[in-house]
Design a protein around this nucleic acid. Structure first.
Lengths: 343, 343
DNA sequence: AACCTTTTCGAAAAGGTTTTCGTTTGCAGC
DNA sequence: GCTGCAAACGAAAACCTTTTCGAAAAGGTT
C-alpha cells in the first residue's frame, strides 16, 4: 500500500522522476543539479543521490529547445576520402570534445546540392555553428542562403573576405623548405610539384621563389615542374631534372608522394641522397615519409592544430567573443634523413 | 494600423509564424507541411507558400522531444587517425545521408574513459542508435552500462556474442589471396605479415593455410613470418625468405605496406616481379598499391560497404525490423601488375 | 427548410527542462 | 507574541511541434 515514487522502467529517467524520488519539485531538482539558485545543501544532496540512482541524464533536446543553445555544431566536409580533411576533423572534434559540444559530421562529397541539403538538415537541428572544411586551398563559394549561425571556413577559405577563414600558409611552407635546403649549403635547387591548377602548388612555388631570391638565387629552369601529385610524376620529373641539370643538388617536392617517386629515381640512377642531392617532401604524411629510403624530410602543415583553431574560433564567434576574422597558420619542418649539409 | 502578421526578424521562423502568415492554425500548418490529415488543397498551397516565404525549417529538437525519435545516431570511433575507420565512417554516413538521419561523430582515441564520456553525451542528446567502430578486428568489450538504444559494432566485434557485430572475413581474405596465387601456377608460397598479436594477422594466415591445404600444399616454413605492418619489416623479411628459399615463387603479404617493402627488396635483388615471383598485398590502400613498381595486386576488404551495412543494420534495429544479428563481409581481389601466371 | 454525411479545421495536450516570481518557512530582534 | 527578513522551495510559463478529437462548415438529399 505504499505510495512511494516508483522507479521508471524501460524509459530514460526524467527530471520529474528524480524530483519525485527526492521528494522535491522539478524546479528545485533542476537547480540542485545545475548548481543554480538557492537550495539547501541537504536537499541538493538528496537530489543528486536520486539522480545518481536513476542514472539521470538531462534531455539535451528539451534544454536546447528552451535556451536556444544546443551544444552542437555542424562539420561539413567536401571530401572525407582526402587525406587533408581527417586531421582537421580530428583537431576540431578535439577542441569541442573538451567542452560540452558534440559534432555533427556531414560529407558533401564536393556536391553543391548535397551541401545545401546537409546545411538545411543541420540548421533544422539548430546547431550553434558550422565549420566548413575544404579539400583544396583554393577559395570556395560561401554557403548559399541566409545562415543564422556563425560559420568558420577551414583549409579552403571562403571567397567572401568578410567570412571567417582559417588557412594554412603555403607560401611560408615553400619558404621553409627552401631555407632549410639553403642552410644545408645547396645552391642548385629544383622544384617538382603537382597540378598548377591548385592554389597550393602555386603558393608553395611562390614561397620557394621568394626564399631563393632572398639568397640571390633562382630555381633551376626558373620555374617549377608542374605535373600531378603522385609518385609516378615524381619519378618521371626526377629523370628530366637530372638529365637537364646534372649539377642539381637539391629537389623541393610539392608532396611526399612526389618526393617518394623522386627518391626512387635517384636511387635507380645511383645518386646519393642526401650526400649528393637533398630532397624534401610536403605534407609530412607519416605513412609515406617515414618509410621511404632514406626517410623523408618534409613540411608538416599542422592540420590538426588548424582544426582545433577553427573549433576555438567558432566557439568564440558563438559566444560573441571577438577574435581576428581570419587567420593563417604556418607549417613546420620535420627533419629526417633525406636532407643533410653537402659533404 | 494594419494588424497583419509580421515577418519575424533575426530569429528562425517557427510554425506559428507560418500559420499566422497563412491565416490558419498551427495544427493545420503542421498537417499541410507534413502531408498528413485532411487539409484542402488550396489551404495546403497557402501554407506551403508561407513556409517558403519564411524559409521555414521545422525545429528538429521540438520534433524529437515529442516523438521520441530524433533522427540522429552516434558514431563512436576508437581512432580516426587509422586508415580503417575512415572508409567505414564514410559508408555509414552515406547510408544515413540518404535518409533523414544525421551523424554525431565522436573519437574516443582508444580511451575507455573518453568513450564513456562520449556515450553519456550522445545518450543525453537522445540519439536513436549507436555505431561503434573499432580499429582492430580483435573483439572489444561492449559498451559499459545500460544503453537504451540499439548498438552496432563494426570492424571490431563486441566480445558479447549477443550484440550486433559487422566484421570483415579475414580468413576468406587470406583464402582469396592464396587461391589467386595458386591460379597463377605458384607452388612455393611464403606469407609475410604483421604483428601476431592481431587477430587479423592470425585469421589471414589461417585462411592462407587452409587454401594451401586444399591444394595439398603448405606455406614455406610451415608458418607465416610475423613482424610489424610496415615497409621496413617487408624489406627485411623478403631478404630472409629469398635467402632461405631461393625457390620461392610467390609472397602473400599481410598489408600493402609490407608488400611494398617486399617489392623493393626483390627489385634490389634483381628478382623479376611478377615474372619469377608474384606478390599480393592486403587492404588495397590506393595510395600505396597503385603507385608501387609494379602496381600491387591486393585484397580489398570493402570497408565502405561494411560501414554502409552497419548503417542499414542499425536502421533496421531502430525500426524493429529483424536482420541477422551479426554478419561477415567478404573481401575482393583487386588485380594489378604484381601477380601473373608463371611464364 | 431540415437533416445527414463528408470534409476541413482548430483547441489543447504532450514532451522535458529552465527560469521567473511568488509563497512559505525559519529565525532573530523587539 | 509580533514584525521583518532572508533563505528555501514550488507553481507555472515558455520553447516548438505533432496528434487527437471535437466542432464547424460545406455539400447533398429529402
Amino acid at each position: 500500500m505504499s505510495t512511494e515514487p516508483e522507479i521508471p522502467v524501460n524509459r530514460a529517467a526524467t527530471l520529474t522522476d528524480v524530483a519525485k524520488l527526492a521528494g522535491v519539485s522539478v524546479a528545485t531538482a533542476s537547480k540542485a543539479i545545475n548548481g543554480r539558485g538557492d537550495v539547501r545543501a541537504a536537499t541538493r544532496q538528496r537530489v543528486l543521490e536520486a539522480a545518481e540512482m536513476l542514472s539521470f541524464a538531462p534531455n539535451a533536446l528539451a534544454r536546447g529547445l528552451l535556451g536556444g543553445r544546443t551544444g552542437t555544431v555542424g562539420l561539413l566536409t567536401s571530401d572525407l576520402e582526402g587525406r587533408f580533411s581527417i586531421p582537421i576533423l580530428m583537431g576540431a572534434e578535439d577542441a569541442f570534445g573538451a567542452g560540452q559540444v558534440s559534432v555533427f559530421l556531414c560529407d558533401a562529397r564536393g556536391d553543391a546540392i548535397r551541401e545545401r541539403y546537409h546545411v538545411r538538415a543541420l540548421l533544422s537541428r539548430r546547431v550553434d555553428g558550422l565549420i566548413v572544411v575544404g579539400s583544396r586551398t583554393d577559395p570556395r563559394p560561401p554557403l548559399a542562403g541566409p545562415i543564422p549561425v556563425p560559420v568558420v571556413y577551414v583549409y579552403a577559405p571562403s571567397a567572401n573576405p568578410d567570412d571567417i577563414s582559417i588557412t594554412v600558409d603555403n607560401v611560408g611552407g615553400g619558404r621553409l623548405a627552401i631555407e632549410h635546403l639553403l642552410a644545408c649549403g645547396r645552391r642548385h635547387i629544383a622544384h617538382i610539384t603537382g597540378d598548377a591548377g591548385y592554389q597550393a602548388a602555386r603558393d608553395r612555388a611562390d614561397g620557394a621563389r621568394a626564399a631563393l631570391a632572398d639568397a640571390g638565387l633562382t630555381m633551376l629552369d626558373g620555374k617549377p615542374y608542374y605535373g600531378s601529385w603522385d609518385e609516378t610524376w615524381g619519378r618521371a620529373a626526377a629523370h628530366i631534372v637530372v638529365e637537364r641539370h646534372p649539377e642539381v643538388d637539391a629537389i623541393f617536392c610539392g608532396s611526399d608522394q612526389i618526393a617518394r617517386g623522386v627518391l626512387e629515381t635517384l636511387r635507380d640512377l645511383g645518386r646519393d641522397v642526401p650526400g649528393s642531392i637533398s630532397v624534401t617532401g610536403f605534407d609530412n604524411w607519416e605513412a609515406v615519409a617515414a618509410h621511404s629510403r632514406p626517410r623523408l624530410t618534409s613540411i608538416d602543415m599542422n592540420l590538426e592544430q588548424l582544426g582545433a583553431a577553427a573549433g576555438r574560433r567558432l566557439f568564440a564567434a558563438i559566444d560573441g567573443g571577438d577574435l581576428p576574422r581570419s587567420d593563417q597558420y604556418p607549417g613546420r619542418l620535420v627533419m629526417r634523413d633525406s636532407t643533410a649539409p653537402a659533404q
